[in-house]
Amino acid sequence: MTSRPGARATGSSGTRSDGNDFKPKEKVGPSHYQMSASFRSEIKTLTIVQLLIWVLVATQVAVTHLNLVSPDLVAAPYQWEYPYLLSLIPSLVGALALPRNNISYLVISMISSGLFSVAPLIFGAMEMFPVAQQLYRHGKAYRFIFGFSAVSVMYLVMVVAVQVHAWHLYYCKKLLDAWFDSTQEKKKK
């Protein structure tokens, strides 16, 4: 490939330029594309963490119901854990939305995440509160998971799950805004 005839860009010392003076021209498209890529990455990471939390809860439920270990070793699941098992649905729908920028799947994922993920966690916090209060006041626990108080372990899981789901909803909303901005730009053209 040949270059055009004429003077070449020179640096301050009269030598040829190394290209640093042309950096502003190397910008990559609108910023919402870059934001979309970073939000996708965050959502993928949070989806993996959500799946790990789901596997923990599903394992406790399965181990208890299949009688794989002694009930003294792993306590029976609380009632909120059963509807929380449906939290896999919003994660999978959200993952389906990412490859093709499917706005409707992302909206369905956000709504169902509130219904199947956050609502059971709120119910679980209320369900376990009397047991946690009894443990705090009297130091007595009646249910255990590998020697630890079941209510303490499950509250720890819930605290992590609430944070993960909240960040997931936040990044989904930001990604939705970025996708909406890009569709608006396409309509203007």
Rank of each mutant, 00 (worst) to 15 (best):
T2P: 12
S3M: 07
P5Q: 02
A7Y: 08
R8I: 03
R8K: 14
T10I: 06
S12L: 12
S12W: 12
S12E: 09
R16C: 01
R16L: 12
S17Y: 00
D18S: 12
D21H: 08
K23N: 07
K23D: 08
K23G: 07
P24D: 05
Y33T: 14
Y33P: 04
Q34K: 11
Q34F: 11
Q34T: 13
Q34W: 11
M35Q: 15
M35F: 09
A37W: 03
F39V: 03
R40K: 14
E42M: 10
I43T: 02
I43P: 03
L46T: 00
I48Y: 04
Q50C: 15
W54M: 04
W54N: 03
T59G: 15
T59Q: 00
T64H: 12
H65L: 08
H65P: 01
L68S: 05
V69R: 10
P71A: 05
P71T: 05
V74D: 09
A75H: 03
A75G: 07
A76Q: 06
P77E: 00
P77V: 01
P77C: 04
W80E: 01
Y82V: 09
L85T: 07
L86M: 15
L92G: 05
L92F: 02
L92A: 14
V93R: 01
G94D: 07
G94P: 04
A95S: 10
A95Q: 11
A97M: 04
A97W: 06
L98Q: 04
P99D: 07
R100I: 00
R100W: 11
R100G: 13
R100F: 15
R100H: 12
N101C: 05
N102E: 08
N102V: 02
N102R: 08
N102L: 03
S104P: 01
S104D: 13
Y105H: 13
V107L: 14
V107C: 04
V107G: 02
S109N: 06
I111C: 10
S112I: 06
L115F: 12
F116M: 13
F116D: 03
V118C: 00
L121Q: 01
I122R: 09
G124N: 03
M126A: 13
E127A: 06
M128Y: 01
F129K: 05
V131D: 02
V131G: 06
Q133N: 11
Q133I: 00
Q134I: 09
Q134W: 06
Q134D: 08
Q134R: 13
L135N: 10
R137D: 10
K140V: 13
A141R: 00
R143V: 03
R143I: 00
F144C: 06
F144N: 05
G147F: 07
F148M: 09
S149K: 01
A150M: 02
A150F: 05
A150I: 02
V151I: 04
S152N: 08
S152A: 15
V153P: 01
V153S: 02
M154H: 06
M154T: 09
M154F: 00
Y155V: 05
L156W: 06
V157A: 11
M158T: 09
M158V: 04
V159Q: 01
V160T: 06
V160P: 01
A161G: 05
A161W: 02
V162K: 07
Q163A: 15
Q163N: 14
Q163V: 13
V164S: 07
V164H: 05
V164K: 01
L169N: 10
L169M: 10
Y170A: 09
Y170N: 09
K173T: 14
K173W: 13
K174D: 11
L176F: 09
D177G: 11
F180S: 15
D181T: 15
K189D: 14
